[in-house]
């Protein structure tokens, strides 16, 4: 990678990179296939959370018993990622390194405060997911670095969660998507995270809305206010799929629904 700086690309499942090669959008001089490195294919549970190797495919995330026990929002959300054949090949490391602003795994990383583990000639480092995504298809990863694993911290006991997205067809990139995680104390929201995708240059949290929700019960008035504020705070683009205004509308819809689900799940024993 270092000797071909700027001319080399890593490939694992290739589900994002291969279309770009087929379209001749990229023509790297060197492709390094990391898809058979066994260390990258591990899912490891620790006291702090679950560490997922970069080479774990979406299908394995969907079926992972470790995730189902501690972070079922990840298993659940994987069903929205493309289609079966793509999920069999595409990897979490590839999805994060590709950094599509409408993709589910970058959103989950930002929502769940994941740590992204990176190795390069200068040694190992860890990036916070929130700092990792810089612009569409642009991340903090430099040309000679490898994303090796992701650590998702455990959710607090009793957390409720929700994920919602709207796409034109099953498996298409979302026009808008939202993830929410919250905990309750004495019937009000004690902690909450809300992240959006497809409606900005990168997946992002909405800290002002998170702050507004603290100490509140998720009733109709709070819901209406949160949905309105989501629409004010996102910054979607128009393209062939949908206008910016339509995406702004959908952002409110999915955020409201994700919080509905998280609130309902938070009340379960």
């Amino acid at each position: 990678m270092a000797s071909h700086r700027g001319e080399a690309k890593l490939i694992a499942g290739g589900q994002s990179l291969m279309p770009m090669l087929n379209f001749r959008l990229l023509d790297p001089a060197l492709l390094v296939d990391i898809s058979r490195l066994p260390d990258l294919a591990q899912i490891t549970a620790s006291g702090r959370g679950i560490t997922v190797g970069a080479g774990v495919c979406h299908h394995a995330l969907m079926r992972s018993p470790e995730l189902a026990e501690r972070l079922p929002i990840i298993n659940h959300t994987m069903q929205y990622v493309a289609h079966m054949a793509i999920r069999n090949r595409g990897t979490i490391g590839g999805s994060l390194a590709h950094g599509d602003p409408a993709a589910e795994l970058p959103l989950l990383a930002v929502l769940l405060d994941a740590d992204i583990h990176i190795t390069g000639p200068a040694g190992d480092r860890t990036a916070r997911a929130e700092d990792f995504f810089l612009a569409p298809l642009t991340t903090d990863l430099s040309e000679d670095e490898i994303l090796t694993a992701v650590t998702f911290p455990n959710l607090a006991a009793g957390s409720g969660w929700g994920f919602e997205e709207i796409a034109r067809r099953t498996g298409d990139f979302a026009l808008a998507g939202a993830g929410a995680v919250l905990t309750l104390h004495h019937g009000v929201i004690a902690d909450v995270r809300l992240a959006m995708m497809g409606v900005d240059e990168t997946p992002r949290r909405l800290p002002a809305i998170e702050a507004m929700l603290l100490g509140r019960a998720w009733d109709a008035g709070v819901r209406a206010s949160a949905v309105r504020q989501v629409r004010e705070q996102v910054n979607p683009m128009s393209d062939l799929q949908a206008s910016a205004d339509y995406r702004r509308h959908l952002a409110g819809v999915v955020a409201g629904r994700a919080l509905d689900t998280a609130w309902a799940k938070g009340h379960m024993p």
Binding site: I11, G14, Q15, M18, P19, N22, D33, H59, M84, I86
Partner: peptide, 27 residues
């Protein structure tokens, strides 16, 4: 389509469905 959208090239790779157009033969 040659970019993974249409599914016409889907084959089984070690028993699991995969897009043959998104896989290098060396892989």
């Amino acid at each position: 389509c040659e970019h993974g959208v249409c599914g016409a090239c889907t084959v089984l790779l070690d028993g699991n469905s995969a897009r043959a157009c998104l896989c290098l033969a060396v892989q």
